[in-house]
Amino acid sequence: MPELLTVLVYGLVQAAVLLLVALGFSVTFGLSGIPNFSHGGVYILSGFVCWFSLRKLGWPYPLAVAASVAVAATVGLLVYAAVIRPVRRLVLAEVIATFAVGVAMLELFRWMGLVTYEFNLPAVVAGSVALGDVVVDAHRLVVVASAAGLGLALWWFGRATRTGLALRAMAQEEYTALSLGIREDRMAALSVVLGSALAAVAAVLVLPLGLISINLGYDAMLVALAVTVTGGTERTAGLVLAALLLGLSTVVAGVLIGPHWSEVVYLAAIVAVLAVRPSGILGRLKELEERV
């Protein structure tokens, strides 16, 4: 019974981590159809910016976080303007171009020698909390609360603000949105900027759970793809459900088989969903479903 509780608690934490890491990629892809695979590079860049602001510049934590988000958003805008915009709507070109940017960023960090143990971020809250027989770092609970808060904030943004409504409208009926004066180019850029900013939020919350490792950038791309494909992009609830399923599955796989099996879980989820329900668990893209 205590083991079950441990699996549930850590499964929930893992689900929150996955949701945070995937949210930026999913939001961009869901709103504008742009598969922004520079996500992993921006994620790690944000971690380094936060680290540099804290350790080298001595900035307070909130300012370092703000700097990370600002840099990530700016990089997102630059990636959109310089790389995505010229190949917009050529899906394969978008995938290749953004993937190349992500890999280039990560390998640049490796080439710069940013691979030592000194690159770590502090926990938002120190200490630990006992949940029954299970002891959890307070920071992991912050991660769970932040994932829930961010999900709710995005839900509110999409319904209560004019820009959020315009982004959702553009994703649903593009030409009708255009006929109302909504600028497609601006919305697409905004979706990439928003996704990149969310990658930075994920970085400052998730990277304190370990070191800032360049390989985590590649993991972030895989996680983002797995959660997005599994959940579908049309509804936040689908992403949450996918994160919960994958989070619990990876923890169970880690306990029963071994921790290195988690990536197999992600890949298996991608293959299974594409084979059975290609628009995702809660996806509603009929044209995809009809192909199965």
């Binding site: 409504l165 959702r168 409208a169 649903q172 009926e173 030409y175 009708t176 949105a177 006929s179 049309e234």
Partner: peptide
């Protein structure tokens, strides 16, 4: 312009 085929945003 009000487009043809009841152009509304279905999920909104």
């Amino acid at each position: 312009l009000c487009r043809e085929r009841h152009a509304v945003f279905r999920d909104l």
